[in-house]
């Protein structure tokens, strides 16, 4: 975002209009980021609301010498998702709650459902970090540098994790033809729910 740092500085000086500018720029991005981890509209809205409330309250704690505002905001969002599932007391290792609530999942509890896609099985076999990095790179089109700032790592370690994830996915897809993978991926938005933690 152009002149982002100046808006952040104004926010820290108490300028709520400047916060509104930042909000307008990031609301869609943060909502999508949260939605890709929850796939439930109401949950995504609750968490997104929590993220921006926290950002507003903590804005004075942001230090531009320690990183960029976007990475700071996404880290708040990432942690808000973790906090949400911890508050639900899911009895699964938090490193990977891909299957959280799967047994209770009904067609009504998911925004759109049309059967599990083959690709869901493939993505399930990846580790949580690989899934998160692939999502941010492929769906959010974030740079490796941006992803690294969010997940905590060097840019090159993120590249490695992404490449290895694609390699693993390719191995698991086996001899599935590109068309089959395409059709399977087409329904991933309707049935896939994965929550990635480290």
């Amino acid at each position: 975002m152009e002149d982002e740092s100046s808006y952040v500085t104004k926010c820290q000086a108490g300028d709520t209009v400047a916060f509104g500018v930042l909000y307008d720029y990031y609301i869609d991005k943060i909502y999508r980021f949260v939605y890709y981890k929850t796939f439930v509209k109401e949950v995504a809205e609750d968490i997104t609301s929590d993220v921006f409330h926290k950002a507003l309250v903590k804005i004075n704690s942001f230090d531009s010498s320690k990183g960029v505002f976007s990475a700071w905001l996404y880290r708040i969002a990432r942690n808000a998702v973790i906090d949400y599932y911890r508050s639900q007391k899911f009895d699964v290792p938090l490193e990977d709650v891909f299957e959280v609530g799967a047994e209770d999942r009904t067609p009504e509890s998911i925004d759109a459902l049309s059967g599990l896609a083959k690709v869901t099985e493939y993505l399930e076999t990846l580790n949580a970090k690989q899934r998160e990095i692939i999502t941010l790179r492929v769906w959010e089109e974030m740079s490796y540098q941006e992803i690294a700032a969010i997940v905590g790592g060097t840019e090159d370690s993120v590249k490695m994790a992404f490449s290895r994830g694609i390699r693993d996915l390719r191995e698991k897809c086996g001899d599935v033809s590109p068309l089959t993978v395409f059709l399977a991926c087409g329904s991933v938005a309707e049935s896939l729910r994965f929550i990635d933690f480290t």
């Binding site: 909000y23 609301s49 921006f52 390719r170 590109p178 395409f182 399977a184 991926c185 938005a189």
Partner: peptide, 28 residues
């Protein structure tokens, strides 16, 4: 094909404008 499929599988997410505006008012 695999990467292309992943790109194509990107969920179409429509943020509820009522939610956006309501949250904005609340925050400001």
């Amino acid at each position: 094909a695999l990467v292309s499929s992943l790109v194509s599988a990107k969920p179409v997410v429509a943020v509820d404008d009522t939610f956006v505006q309501s949250l904005r008012r609340e925050l400001l």
